Amino acid sequence: MEKKSFTFDEIKQKLVNYCVYQDRCHYEVEQKMKEFLLIDEAKEEIMLYLLQENYLNEERFTRSYIRGKFYIKHWGKAKIRIHLKQKHVPEKLINTCFDEIDERDYEKAIRKIYEDYYSKQQNLQEYQRKSKTIKYLMGRGFEYEKINNIFD
């Protein structure tokens, strides 16, 4: 398939739209830029523009990502952290932004997911139901210590 060629301004506008549609991290924008044959100077100029005009804001991205994955998808912090690291978000920024999750909400989520999943485990011995449920929660990215503290 022939790659359609765009002018610098068209590419810049496409990347603005990409960032406006939803918050993006630097890595996602860099990946998106690979679709267009740009020289490094052009890439840098576009990145700078997106940052200066606040279309691209790594902290805003990280905060909204954390909120969405926890409050909508009900992921635990471990899973969220792994996915943010895959997007090359700095560890320090991830740690700073975890204050988006209220500790009480986090514990409530663990309790609720635990109870919902546990109640569906029929015809098993108690310890099997419990360990299966803990495994399930850990798969959702909740920390073993956290889960244990809640149910001790």
Rank of each mutant, 00 (worst) to 15 (best):
F36A: 00
R24V: 06
K130S: 05
M1Q: 09
M1H: 11
C19T: 07
F8P: 04
I94M: 04
E91D: 13
S64N: 14
G139R: 11
L56S: 08
C19F: 07
R81F: 12
E143F: 08
D99G: 00
L84F: 09
N148C: 08
E44V: 07
Y21C: 01
R63G: 05
K108G: 07
K112Q: 13
I66G: 01
R24T: 03
N123D: 14
D23E: 14
F8T: 04
I110N: 02
L48H: 10
T7F: 06
E59S: 12
I134T: 13
I101R: 09
R140Q: 15
Y71G: 06
E103Y: 02
L15S: 04
K132M: 13
F8W: 03
Y71E: 07
H26M: 10
E30I: 04
A109T: 15
N149K: 10
Q86C: 09
K12R: 15
G68I: 00
I39W: 05
T62G: 05
K34W: 00
G141R: 07
M33S: 05
S5M: 10
L137K: 09
C97V: 03
Q52M: 12
Q31F: 09
D116V: 07
S64I: 07
I150R: 05
Y144R: 15
V29F: 10
D116M: 08
S119C: 08
C19E: 07
I80R: 05
Q13V: 01
S119R: 14
A109W: 03
I66N: 04
Q13Y: 10
E41Q: 14
D23L: 05
E45W: 02
D23A: 13
L56F: 10
S5E: 14
E30H: 04
I46S: 02
V29D: 08
G76H: 07
I150N: 00
I72M: 07
L93W: 02
Y49L: 12
Y55K: 08
E143W: 02
H74E: 11
V20T: 15
I150Q: 08
M33Q: 11
L38P: 06
L15T: 05
Y118R: 09
V16R: 14
